[in-house]
Design a binder for these strands. Structure first.
Length: 392
RNA sequence: GGAGGGGUGGGUGAGCGGCUAAUACCACCAGACUGUAAAUCUGGCGCCCGGAAGGGCUUCGUAGGUUCGAAUCCUACCCCCUCCA
Protein backbone atom coordinates (compact mmCIF):
# COMPACT_ATOMS: atom_id res chain seq x y z
CA UNK A 1 0.00 0.00 0.00
CA UNK A 2 2.93 2.33 -0.43
CA UNK A 3 3.71 2.17 -4.13
CA UNK A 4 0.74 4.18 -5.32
CA UNK A 5 2.45 7.47 -4.48
CA UNK A 6 5.84 8.39 -5.83
CA UNK A 7 7.61 11.52 -4.65
CA UNK A 8 9.86 12.65 -7.47
CA UNK A 9 11.52 15.68 -5.95
CA UNK A 10 11.62 17.54 -2.67
CA UNK A 11 12.51 21.19 -2.22
CA UNK A 12 12.45 22.34 1.37
CA UNK A 13 9.17 20.94 2.66
CA UNK A 14 7.56 21.10 -0.77
CA UNK A 15 7.33 17.93 -2.83
CA UNK A 16 6.27 16.92 -6.30
CA UNK A 17 5.20 13.47 -7.30
CA UNK A 18 2.59 11.22 -8.83
CA UNK A 19 -0.40 9.57 -7.26
CA UNK A 20 -1.66 6.58 -9.21
CA UNK A 21 -5.37 5.83 -9.27
CA UNK A 22 -7.64 3.40 -11.09
CA UNK A 23 -8.52 6.13 -13.60
CA UNK A 24 -5.07 7.52 -14.16
CA UNK A 25 -2.25 9.40 -12.52
CA UNK A 26 -2.48 12.62 -10.57
CA UNK A 27 0.52 14.91 -10.65
CA UNK A 28 1.12 16.60 -7.31
CA UNK A 29 0.86 19.24 -6.03
CA UNK A 30 -2.65 18.99 -7.43
CA UNK A 31 -5.70 21.17 -7.27
CA UNK A 32 -9.01 19.32 -7.57
CA UNK A 33 -11.91 21.29 -9.03
CA UNK A 34 -15.04 20.79 -7.00
CA UNK A 35 -17.96 18.92 -8.58
CA UNK A 36 -20.15 18.54 -5.51
CA UNK A 37 -23.24 17.28 -7.32
CA UNK A 38 -21.34 15.45 -10.03
CA UNK A 39 -20.65 18.55 -12.07
CA UNK A 40 -18.16 21.36 -11.84
CA UNK A 41 -20.72 24.15 -11.97
CA UNK A 42 -20.97 25.74 -15.42
CA UNK A 43 -18.41 23.37 -16.99
CA UNK A 44 -18.47 20.22 -19.08
CA UNK A 45 -15.89 17.46 -18.71
CA UNK A 46 -14.32 18.56 -22.02
CA UNK A 47 -13.70 21.99 -20.54
CA UNK A 48 -11.99 20.37 -17.56
CA UNK A 49 -9.75 18.17 -19.70
CA UNK A 50 -8.82 21.16 -21.84
CA UNK A 51 -7.75 23.26 -18.90
CA UNK A 52 -5.67 20.43 -17.53
CA UNK A 53 -7.62 19.10 -14.57
CA UNK A 54 -6.36 15.66 -13.48
CA UNK A 55 -8.89 14.85 -10.81
CA UNK A 56 -12.25 16.12 -9.61
CA UNK A 57 -13.92 16.10 -6.23
CA UNK A 58 -17.53 15.05 -5.76
CA UNK A 59 -19.61 14.73 -2.61
CA UNK A 60 -21.16 11.51 -1.39
CA UNK A 61 -23.56 13.26 0.96
CA UNK A 62 -25.06 15.42 -1.75
CA UNK A 63 -25.22 12.58 -4.26
CA UNK A 64 -26.84 10.36 -1.65
CA UNK A 65 -29.72 12.83 -1.35
CA UNK A 66 -29.98 13.39 -5.09
CA UNK A 67 -30.06 11.43 -7.28
CA UNK A 68 -29.11 8.65 -4.83
CA UNK A 69 -25.95 6.58 -4.84
CA UNK A 70 -27.82 3.44 -5.84
CA UNK A 71 -29.07 5.14 -8.97
CA UNK A 72 -25.59 6.36 -9.83
CA UNK A 73 -24.30 2.85 -9.34
CA UNK A 74 -27.01 1.43 -11.58
CA UNK A 75 -26.06 3.98 -14.22
CA UNK A 76 -22.56 2.55 -14.28
CA UNK A 77 -20.93 4.54 -11.52
CA UNK A 78 -20.11 8.19 -11.17
CA UNK A 79 -17.48 8.28 -13.92
CA UNK A 80 -19.92 7.00 -16.51
CA UNK A 81 -22.81 8.98 -15.11
CA UNK A 82 -21.05 12.33 -15.32
CA UNK A 83 -18.97 11.54 -18.36
CA UNK A 84 -15.61 12.04 -16.71
CA UNK A 85 -12.94 9.43 -17.43
CA UNK A 86 -10.32 10.74 -15.04
CA UNK A 87 -9.86 10.21 -11.34
CA UNK A 88 -12.54 11.24 -8.86
CA UNK A 89 -12.18 11.82 -5.15
CA UNK A 90 -15.38 11.82 -3.15
CA UNK A 91 -15.83 13.60 0.11
CA UNK A 92 -17.68 11.48 2.64
CA UNK A 93 -20.10 14.13 3.85
CA UNK A 94 -18.06 14.88 6.95
CA UNK A 95 -17.84 18.53 6.04
CA UNK A 96 -21.61 18.72 5.93
CA UNK A 97 -21.66 17.94 9.66
CA UNK A 98 -20.17 21.41 9.85
CA UNK A 99 -21.72 23.37 6.98
CA UNK A 100 -25.22 21.97 7.49
CA UNK A 101 -25.02 21.77 11.25
CA UNK A 102 -28.60 23.03 11.63
CA UNK A 103 -29.86 19.92 9.92
CA UNK A 104 -27.89 17.25 11.74
CA UNK A 105 -27.62 15.25 14.92
CA UNK A 106 -24.35 13.48 15.60
CA UNK A 107 -24.12 10.36 17.69
CA UNK A 108 -21.43 7.75 18.15
CA UNK A 109 -23.04 5.63 15.49
CA UNK A 110 -23.07 8.32 12.83
CA UNK A 111 -24.84 11.45 11.66
CA UNK A 112 -28.57 11.79 11.36
CA UNK A 113 -29.27 14.36 8.68
CA UNK A 114 -32.41 16.14 7.78
CA UNK A 115 -32.26 16.68 4.05
CA UNK A 116 -32.03 20.31 3.02
CA UNK A 117 -33.98 19.33 -0.09
CA UNK A 118 -37.16 17.83 1.32
CA UNK A 119 -36.67 17.50 5.06
CA UNK A 120 -36.44 13.71 4.92
CA UNK A 121 -34.13 12.00 7.38
CA UNK A 122 -30.95 10.21 6.33
CA UNK A 123 -28.38 8.41 8.38
CA UNK A 124 -24.72 8.47 7.53
CA UNK A 125 -22.50 6.11 9.47
CA UNK A 126 -18.81 5.52 8.76
CA UNK A 127 -19.75 2.19 7.17
CA UNK A 128 -22.44 3.81 5.04
CA UNK A 129 -20.06 6.54 3.93
CA UNK A 130 -17.65 3.89 2.70
CA UNK A 131 -20.39 1.85 1.09
CA UNK A 132 -21.77 4.89 -0.74
CA UNK A 133 -18.39 5.99 -1.99
CA UNK A 134 -17.84 2.43 -3.17
CA UNK A 135 -21.11 2.49 -5.08
CA UNK A 136 -20.18 5.80 -6.62
CA UNK A 137 -16.93 4.22 -7.74
CA UNK A 138 -14.64 6.94 -6.43
CA UNK A 139 -10.92 6.49 -7.03
CA UNK A 140 -10.28 8.03 -3.66
CA UNK A 141 -12.75 7.79 -0.81
CA UNK A 142 -12.59 9.89 2.32
CA UNK A 143 -13.21 8.63 5.83
CA UNK A 144 -16.21 10.09 7.59
CA UNK A 145 -15.04 12.76 10.00
CA UNK A 146 -16.62 15.29 12.28
CA UNK A 147 -15.60 18.82 11.52
CA UNK A 148 -16.15 21.07 14.52
CA UNK A 149 -16.39 24.86 14.27
CA UNK A 150 -13.00 26.53 14.60
CA UNK A 151 -14.07 28.35 17.75
CA UNK A 152 -15.37 25.26 19.54
CA UNK A 153 -13.96 24.91 23.04
CA UNK A 154 -11.30 22.31 23.76
CA UNK A 155 -13.80 19.82 25.11
CA UNK A 156 -15.94 19.89 22.02
CA UNK A 157 -12.94 19.95 19.72
CA UNK A 158 -11.49 16.92 21.44
CA UNK A 159 -14.83 15.15 21.35
CA UNK A 160 -15.11 15.68 17.59
CA UNK A 161 -11.50 14.68 17.08
CA UNK A 162 -11.73 11.46 19.07
CA UNK A 163 -14.97 10.54 17.35
CA UNK A 164 -13.23 11.17 14.04
CA UNK A 165 -10.55 8.67 15.09
CA UNK A 166 -13.05 5.99 16.03
CA UNK A 167 -14.95 6.57 12.81
CA UNK A 168 -11.67 6.41 10.88
CA UNK A 169 -11.02 2.96 12.29
CA UNK A 170 -14.52 1.82 11.31
CA UNK A 171 -14.09 3.23 7.81
CA UNK A 172 -10.78 1.46 7.45
CA UNK A 173 -12.33 -1.76 8.73
CA UNK A 174 -15.27 -1.71 6.34
CA UNK A 175 -13.31 -0.64 3.29
CA UNK A 176 -13.25 -3.46 0.71
CA UNK A 177 -12.59 -2.08 -2.76
CA UNK A 178 -9.02 -2.71 -3.86
CA UNK A 179 -9.30 -0.32 -6.79
CA UNK A 180 -10.13 2.54 -4.46
CA UNK A 181 -7.82 4.50 -2.20
CA UNK A 182 -9.05 5.50 1.22
CA UNK A 183 -7.78 8.61 2.97
CA UNK A 184 -8.00 9.31 6.68
CA UNK A 185 -8.66 12.79 8.03
CA UNK A 186 -6.84 14.58 10.82
CA UNK A 187 -8.84 16.96 13.00
CA UNK A 188 -8.02 18.91 16.17
CA UNK A 189 -8.68 22.56 15.39
CA UNK A 190 -5.77 24.94 15.87
CA UNK A 191 -4.29 23.15 18.84
CA UNK A 192 -0.84 21.76 17.97
CA UNK A 193 -1.14 19.13 20.71
CA UNK A 194 -4.46 17.80 19.47
CA UNK A 195 -3.30 17.92 15.88
CA UNK A 196 -0.22 15.84 16.66
CA UNK A 197 -2.32 13.43 18.66
CA UNK A 198 -4.79 13.19 15.79
CA UNK A 199 -2.07 12.70 13.19
CA UNK A 200 -0.63 9.85 15.27
CA UNK A 201 -4.03 8.22 15.73
CA UNK A 202 -5.00 8.43 12.08
CA UNK A 203 -1.65 7.42 10.60
CA UNK A 204 -1.60 4.37 12.82
CA UNK A 205 -4.51 3.07 10.73
CA UNK A 206 -2.41 2.99 7.55
CA UNK A 207 -4.50 4.81 4.99
CA UNK A 208 -3.49 5.45 1.37
CA UNK A 209 -3.25 9.12 2.13
CA UNK A 210 -3.89 11.64 4.86
CA UNK A 211 -6.05 14.69 4.81
CA UNK A 212 -5.97 17.71 7.04
CA UNK A 213 -9.55 18.72 7.73
CA UNK A 214 -11.13 21.42 9.83
CA UNK A 215 -8.95 24.24 8.55
CA UNK A 216 -9.86 27.28 6.53
CA UNK A 217 -13.17 27.42 8.35
CA UNK A 218 -12.81 30.88 9.81
CA UNK A 219 -9.69 30.62 11.98
CA UNK A 220 -6.93 33.24 11.66
CA UNK A 221 -4.67 32.57 8.73
CA UNK A 222 -1.55 32.44 10.87
CA UNK A 223 -3.08 29.62 12.92
CA UNK A 224 -3.93 27.70 9.78
CA UNK A 225 -0.39 28.03 8.42
CA UNK A 226 1.07 26.96 11.75
CA UNK A 227 -1.02 23.79 11.80
CA UNK A 228 -0.30 23.04 8.16
CA UNK A 229 3.42 23.34 8.80
CA UNK A 230 3.09 20.96 11.72
CA UNK A 231 1.17 18.47 9.57
CA UNK A 232 3.75 18.74 6.84
CA UNK A 233 6.23 17.38 9.34
CA UNK A 234 4.02 14.91 11.19
CA UNK A 235 2.30 13.12 8.32
CA UNK A 236 4.22 10.31 6.57
CA UNK A 237 6.42 11.44 3.69
CA UNK A 238 5.55 8.46 1.52
CA UNK A 239 1.80 9.17 1.43
CA UNK A 240 -0.08 12.02 -0.21
CA UNK A 241 -1.10 14.86 2.08
CA UNK A 242 -4.37 16.50 1.25
CA UNK A 243 -5.33 19.86 2.70
CA UNK A 244 -9.10 19.97 2.48
CA UNK A 245 -10.94 23.09 1.46
CA UNK A 246 -7.97 25.23 0.42
CA UNK A 247 -7.94 27.43 -1.40
CA UNK A 248 -7.01 30.76 -2.58
CA UNK A 249 -3.93 31.13 -4.80
CA UNK A 250 -1.75 32.46 -2.01
CA UNK A 251 -2.89 29.73 0.40
CA UNK A 252 -2.10 27.07 -2.18
CA UNK A 253 1.44 28.34 -2.62
CA UNK A 254 1.97 28.73 1.11
CA UNK A 255 0.66 25.27 1.86
CA UNK A 256 2.62 23.57 -0.90
CA UNK A 257 5.62 25.20 0.76
CA UNK A 258 4.52 23.48 3.97
CA UNK A 259 4.43 20.02 2.45
CA UNK A 260 0.86 19.60 1.19
CA UNK A 261 0.24 17.68 -2.04
CA UNK A 262 -3.46 17.93 -2.80
CA UNK A 263 -6.11 20.59 -2.50
CA UNK A 264 -9.71 21.24 -3.33
CA UNK A 265 -11.77 24.36 -2.99
CA UNK A 266 -15.05 25.76 -4.19
CA UNK A 267 -13.62 29.26 -4.09
CA UNK A 268 -12.26 29.58 -7.64
CA UNK A 269 -15.47 28.43 -9.30
CA UNK A 270 -17.81 30.17 -6.90
CA UNK A 271 -15.92 33.42 -7.13
CA UNK A 272 -15.84 33.03 -10.91
CA UNK A 273 -19.62 32.89 -11.08
CA UNK A 274 -19.68 36.23 -9.33
CA UNK A 275 -17.19 37.89 -11.63
CA UNK A 276 -14.04 37.33 -9.56
CA UNK A 277 -11.04 36.75 -11.79
CA UNK A 278 -7.77 35.33 -10.48
CA UNK A 279 -4.57 36.72 -11.94
CA UNK A 280 -0.92 36.79 -10.93
CA UNK A 281 -1.45 40.40 -9.87
CA UNK A 282 -4.39 39.60 -7.60
CA UNK A 283 -8.10 39.21 -7.87
CA UNK A 284 -10.17 41.38 -10.19
CA UNK A 285 -13.89 41.80 -10.51
CA UNK A 286 -14.90 41.88 -14.19
CA UNK A 287 -18.35 43.09 -13.30
CA UNK A 288 -16.90 46.40 -12.18
CA UNK A 289 -17.54 49.39 -14.41
CA UNK A 290 -13.84 49.76 -15.12
CA UNK A 291 -14.05 46.76 -17.48
CA UNK A 292 -16.87 48.16 -19.58
CA UNK A 293 -14.57 49.14 -22.41
CA UNK A 294 -11.63 46.87 -21.65
CA UNK A 295 -10.57 45.82 -25.11
CA UNK A 296 -8.03 43.28 -23.86
CA UNK A 297 -8.11 39.83 -22.23
CA UNK A 298 -9.01 39.32 -18.59
CA UNK A 299 -5.48 38.16 -17.95
CA UNK A 300 -2.83 38.88 -20.55
CA UNK A 301 -0.60 36.09 -19.19
CA UNK A 302 -3.29 33.41 -19.45
CA UNK A 303 -3.59 30.75 -22.14
CA UNK A 304 -7.15 29.71 -21.30
CA UNK A 305 -9.99 29.63 -23.81
CA UNK A 306 -11.63 32.72 -22.31
CA UNK A 307 -8.48 34.81 -22.37
CA UNK A 308 -7.45 33.64 -25.83
CA UNK A 309 -10.83 34.30 -27.39
CA UNK A 310 -12.58 37.21 -25.72
CA UNK A 311 -12.02 40.71 -24.41
CA UNK A 312 -12.66 41.56 -20.80
CA UNK A 313 -15.29 44.00 -22.08
CA UNK A 314 -17.20 41.12 -23.68
CA UNK A 315 -17.08 39.00 -20.53
CA UNK A 316 -18.08 42.09 -18.53
CA UNK A 317 -21.07 42.43 -20.86
CA UNK A 318 -21.99 38.76 -20.42
CA UNK A 319 -22.03 39.19 -16.66
CA UNK A 320 -24.09 42.36 -16.86
CA UNK A 321 -26.56 40.62 -19.15
CA UNK A 322 -26.50 37.49 -16.97
CA UNK A 323 -25.66 35.42 -20.01
CA UNK A 324 -24.80 31.86 -19.00
CA UNK A 325 -21.58 31.93 -21.00
CA UNK A 326 -20.20 34.38 -18.44
CA UNK A 327 -20.12 31.71 -15.73
CA UNK A 328 -18.48 29.21 -17.99
CA UNK A 329 -15.75 31.52 -19.25
CA UNK A 330 -14.90 32.87 -15.81
CA UNK A 331 -14.82 29.34 -14.36
CA UNK A 332 -12.58 28.14 -17.16
CA UNK A 333 -10.22 31.00 -16.52
CA UNK A 334 -9.99 30.61 -12.75
CA UNK A 335 -9.48 26.87 -12.91
CA UNK A 336 -6.92 27.18 -15.66
CA UNK A 337 -5.17 29.79 -13.55
CA UNK A 338 -4.91 27.33 -10.66
CA UNK A 339 -3.90 24.45 -12.93
CA UNK A 340 -1.06 26.57 -14.27
CA UNK A 341 -0.15 27.60 -10.75
CA UNK A 342 0.16 23.90 -9.87
CA UNK A 343 2.15 23.18 -13.03
CA UNK A 344 4.53 26.02 -12.25
CA UNK A 345 4.87 24.87 -8.66
CA UNK A 346 5.65 21.28 -9.72
CA UNK A 347 8.27 22.52 -12.14
CA UNK A 348 9.85 24.83 -9.59
CA UNK A 349 10.04 22.03 -7.02
CA UNK A 350 11.58 19.70 -9.56
CA UNK A 351 14.18 22.35 -10.37
CA UNK A 352 14.81 23.16 -6.73
CA UNK A 353 13.67 26.75 -7.16
CA UNK A 354 10.40 26.63 -5.29
CA UNK A 355 11.50 29.20 -2.71
CA UNK A 356 12.09 31.78 -5.41
CA UNK A 357 8.85 30.83 -7.13
CA UNK A 358 6.94 31.29 -3.89
CA UNK A 359 8.53 34.67 -3.13
CA UNK A 360 7.86 35.89 -6.61
CA UNK A 361 4.27 34.72 -6.60
CA UNK A 362 3.37 36.05 -3.17
CA UNK A 363 5.15 39.31 -3.92
CA UNK A 364 3.23 39.74 -7.14
CA UNK A 365 -0.13 38.58 -5.88
CA UNK A 366 -1.22 41.84 -4.36
CA UNK A 367 -4.61 42.93 -3.29
CA UNK A 368 -6.72 44.65 -5.91
CA UNK A 369 -6.71 48.41 -6.20
CA UNK A 370 -9.90 48.62 -4.18
CA UNK A 371 -8.46 46.49 -1.39
CA UNK A 372 -5.30 48.53 -1.36
CA UNK A 373 -7.32 51.72 -1.23
CA UNK A 374 -9.41 50.29 1.56
CA UNK A 375 -6.48 49.13 3.60
CA UNK A 376 -4.95 52.57 3.29
CA UNK A 377 -8.20 54.02 4.50
CA UNK A 378 -8.23 51.62 7.44
CA UNK A 379 -4.71 52.65 8.35
CA UNK A 380 -5.73 56.26 8.22
CA UNK A 381 -8.69 55.56 10.51
CA UNK A 382 -6.49 53.62 12.87
CA UNK A 383 -4.02 56.50 13.05
CA UNK A 384 -6.85 58.92 13.69
CA UNK A 385 -8.31 56.72 16.43
CA UNK A 386 -4.95 56.65 18.14
CA UNK A 387 -4.77 60.44 17.89
CA UNK A 388 -8.19 60.78 19.50
CA UNK A 389 -7.46 58.40 22.34
CA UNK A 390 -4.26 60.33 23.08
CA UNK A 391 -6.22 63.57 23.11
CA UNK A 392 -8.66 62.19 25.71
C1' G B 1 -67.88 67.42 -27.57
C1' G B 2 -69.38 63.95 -23.09
C1' A B 3 -67.73 60.53 -18.97
C1' G B 4 -63.86 58.66 -16.21
C1' G B 5 -58.62 57.60 -14.77
C1' G B 6 -53.71 59.40 -14.16
C1' G B 7 -48.90 62.50 -13.82
C1' U B 8 -43.85 60.29 -7.50
C1' G B 9 -36.51 59.86 -7.29
C1' G B 10 -32.61 56.60 -13.91
C1' G B 11 -37.08 52.87 -15.01
C1' U B 12 -41.53 50.15 -13.21
C1' G B 13 -44.38 51.41 -9.15
C1' A B 14 -46.21 52.05 -3.52
C1' G B 15 -47.69 55.95 -0.43
C1' C B 16 -52.69 59.45 -0.23
C1' G B 17 -52.10 65.29 6.09
C1' G B 18 -47.17 64.43 10.55
C1' C B 19 -43.72 58.03 12.06
C1' U B 20 -41.57 60.08 4.36
C1' A B 21 -35.53 62.11 1.48
C1' A B 22 -40.20 59.01 0.34
C1' U B 23 -41.95 51.03 0.49
C1' A B 24 -40.64 47.37 -3.17
C1' C B 25 -38.41 45.58 -7.58
C1' C B 26 -35.05 46.68 -11.60
C1' A B 27 -30.92 49.39 -13.17
C1' C B 28 -26.53 51.56 -11.29
C1' C B 29 -21.82 51.81 -7.63
C1' A B 30 -19.00 48.74 -4.53
C1' G B 31 -17.88 44.58 -1.13
C1' A B 32 -17.87 39.39 0.49
C1' C B 33 -17.25 34.32 -0.96
C1' U B 34 -11.67 28.67 1.15
C1' G B 35 -13.69 19.60 1.93
C1' U B 36 -20.44 24.51 -2.66
C1' A B 37 -28.10 24.25 0.44
C1' A B 38 -24.63 29.99 -3.53
C1' A B 39 -25.60 32.21 -11.57
C1' U B 40 -25.65 33.70 -3.96
C1' C B 41 -25.37 37.23 -0.11
C1' U B 42 -24.26 42.26 2.02
C1' G B 43 -23.85 47.57 1.81
C1' G B 44 -24.67 52.12 -1.00
C1' C B 45 -27.79 54.74 -4.35
C1' G B 46 -31.36 63.54 -4.51
C1' C B 47 -27.27 67.42 -3.53
C1' C B 48 -23.35 69.33 0.01
C1' C B 49 -19.94 68.51 4.54
C1' G B 50 -18.23 64.06 7.36
C1' G B 51 -14.44 58.02 8.32
C1' A B 52 -18.87 57.46 10.93
C1' A B 53 -22.50 59.40 14.10
C1' G B 54 -24.81 63.45 12.41
C1' G B 55 -25.85 68.14 10.17
C1' G B 56 -27.37 71.56 6.09
C1' C B 57 -30.07 72.28 1.42
C1' U B 58 -33.60 71.03 -2.47
C1' U B 59 -37.62 67.22 -4.05
C1' C B 60 -43.27 63.80 -5.64
C1' G B 61 -46.30 67.72 -13.63
C1' U B 62 -46.52 73.63 -13.08
C1' A B 63 -48.26 77.86 -10.26
C1' G B 64 -50.93 79.43 -6.24
C1' G B 65 -53.73 78.33 -1.64
C1' U B 66 -55.52 75.77 3.17
C1' U B 67 -52.79 73.96 7.60
C1' C B 68 -48.54 74.38 13.24
C1' G B 69 -47.25 70.71 9.28
C1' A B 70 -48.72 68.67 2.35
C1' A B 71 -46.25 63.81 -2.34
C1' U B 72 -50.90 63.45 0.36
C1' C B 73 -56.53 68.54 0.93
C1' C B 74 -58.36 72.95 -2.38
C1' U B 75 -58.01 76.12 -7.06
C1' A B 76 -56.15 77.10 -11.86
C1' C B 77 -53.19 75.63 -15.73
C1' C B 78 -50.18 71.98 -18.74
C1' C B 79 -49.70 66.96 -20.34
C1' C B 80 -51.10 61.54 -20.80
C1' C B 81 -54.62 57.29 -21.04
C1' U B 82 -59.55 54.69 -21.48
C1' C B 83 -64.66 54.60 -22.92
C1' C B 84 -68.87 57.08 -25.40
C1' A B 85 -69.96 60.44 -29.44
Amino acid sequence: MTDHFQVRAVDGSARTGTLRTAHGPVETPAFMPVATLGSVKALAPDDLSSLGADILLANAYHLMLRPGVRLVSDMGGLHAFMGWGGPILTDSGGFQTFSLSRLKRVSEDGVLFQSHLDGSEHFLSPEAAIEYQGLLGADIAMALDECAPHDADDTRMRQAMERTHRWAARCRESHRRHDQHLFGIVQGGISPEMRLESAAAVTSLDFHGYAVGGLSVGEPKADMYRIVSLMGEALPANKPRYLMGVGSPEDLVECIARGMDMFDCSLPTRVARNGGILTRAGRLNVVNASFREANYPLDADCDCYACRSFSAAYIHHLFRAKELLAYRLASIHNLRFLMRLMEDARLAIAEGSFGAFRDSFIGGYRATDEELRRSQKDKWLEARRRGESQAD
